[in-house]
């Protein structure tokens, strides 16, 4: 399997990763190699095999719908890159 540069650019956009030209060509090669390895999965017939999503096949536990966390906005925002008046700042989204 061979991935082209435009495939890598599309994946990088989906993953929101800015890549340099060099990275795009390096990853085109690496990802092609890796999916070549992954292709070995096709050597086995898995028709009818139930997918295993979780090793112990447990389902998520439910808890009571109660407030257990307190609001610690100031503490959590103290490690944010850019905040103002209790808000996280990002570039303007709506003109």
């Amino acid at each position: 399997m061979s991935l082209q540069k435009k495939d890598v650019e599309k994946i990088a956009w989906l993953a929101r990763l800015a890549l340099s030209e060099q990275e795009v060509s390096d990853y085109a090669r690496d990802l092609s190699d890796i999916f070549e390895l992954v292709k070995q999965m096709n050597t086995v017939d898995t028709e009818g095999v139930l997918p295993l999503a979780h090793p112990l096949e447990i389902t998520a536990r439910l808890r009571r719908d109660e407030v257990v966390e307190t609001n610690e906005r100031d503490r959590f925002q103290s490690i944010a890159p850019l905040v103002k008046n209790g808000h996280y700042l990002v570039p303007k989204v709506i003109e």
Binding site: A15, R16, L17, A18, L19, E23, Y27, L31, F35
Partner: peptide
Amino acid sequence: RGEGFGAEVKRRIMIGTY
């Protein structure tokens, strides 16, 4: 994300995204 993550992490994010 492009500047904050290193080469291997980006590689794996892309494998998974694809």
